[in-house]
């Protein structure tokens, strides 16, 4: 992609700011998400909590299902490709969806290389646990970043850890003399030019959303107050007792994240949230955030 195309892709992400992107597995859910005020939908066959439960290899979704969802809604449609699976990404580009998520929720296809995203015209969003990982993905051509909170757990602790880590590292960069940036970039595996850019801007050079483990309106507002530009919700909506009500509530809490009264209103009477999972009880080999680097 040339510089102009990359800028357009970053700018589309800017237009999603303040919004909620919802995982959906069929047309009915996509319509419900759109009706509730979602800013985009992520089309996939199984939400992360089911992928976690089912085990096995999780791959790109059936293109026919993605195409149906694309036809059913007017908001942007995203879909996931496996880490490093550039052919799945080619197919999603050929399908003319709006954004690709190179995602650790699917089983990685390559343990050494992520997709060279500069070869594509379509924009990519990638997960990151810290600033180094975020800047490596941006260096590869990602136009949007999200936290890599532990998907399918309904437990926001990892997303919080990632956001706090990024914020801390950005603060460190912003305050250090420029001659220390070389060492900081080296030690954290950051492309040097991008580290300098972050130092200058005081934030990531692209839009940064929260993702992974968000299950309640308060979770969404928490991530927004920590400085995220918007929110992805995966299993949190359609694994809850009342998806339509919860979807609207999370949208409201994201838009009014700084207003406790509004977040409170959004939090009342939602019924059961999705069942939660303690991170310590997940066998280490099943931790999704460790996929990719």
């Amino acid at each position: 992609m040339d510089a102009k195309r990359y800028e357009l892709n970053v700018q589309l992400a800017q237009m999603l700011k303040g919004g909620v992107i919802m995982d959906v597995t069929n047309v009915e859910q996509a319509k419900l998400a759109e009706e509730a005020g979602a800013v985009a939908v992520m089309a996939l066959e199984r939400v992360p909590s089911d992928i976690r439960k089912d085990g096995g290899v999780a791959r790109m979704s059936d293109p026919a299902m993605i195409a149906e969802i694309k036809k059913a809604v007017s908001i942007p449609v995203m879909a996931k490709a496996r880490i490093g699976h550039f052919v799945e990404a080619q197919l999603l580009e050929a399908l003319r969806i709006d954004y690709i998520d190179e995602s650790e929720v699917l089983t990685p296809a390559d343990e050494e290389c992520h997709i060279d995203k500069t070869k594509f015209s379509i924009p990519f969003v990638c997960g990151a646990r810290n600033l180094g990982e975020a800047l490596r993905r941006i260096g590869e051509g990602a136009a949007m970043i999200r936290t890599k909170g532990e998907a399918g757990t309904g437990n926001v602790v990892e997303a919080v850890r990632h956001m706090r880590t990024m914020n801390r590292e950005i603060r460190q960069l912003a305050q250090m003399p420029v001659e220390e940036v070389t060492g900081f970039a080296k030690n954290n595996g950051m492309p040097y030019e991008l580290a300098l850019r972050v130092k200058e801007l005081g934030r990531l050079p692209v839009v940064n959303f929260a993702a992974g483990g968000i299950a309640t309106p308060a979770d969404a507002a928490l991530m927004m107050q920590l400085g995220c530009d918007g929110v992805f919700v995966g299993s949190g909506i359609f694994k809850s007792a009342d998806p339509a009500l919860r979807a609207r509530a999370i949208v409201k809490a994201t838009a009014y994240f700084n207003d406790p009264q509004k977040v409170l209103e959004a939090s009342i009477g939602l019924g059961e949230a999705m069942p939660g999972l303690e991170i310590g009880q997940i066998p280490p080999e099943q931790i999704l955030a460790k996929r990719g680097w």
Partner: peptide, 15 residues
Amino acid sequence: PGGESTCLARLLNIF
């Protein structure tokens, strides 16, 4: 502003 029109329209109604 620009954003997602469907989303903004819903939000104007809901809020």
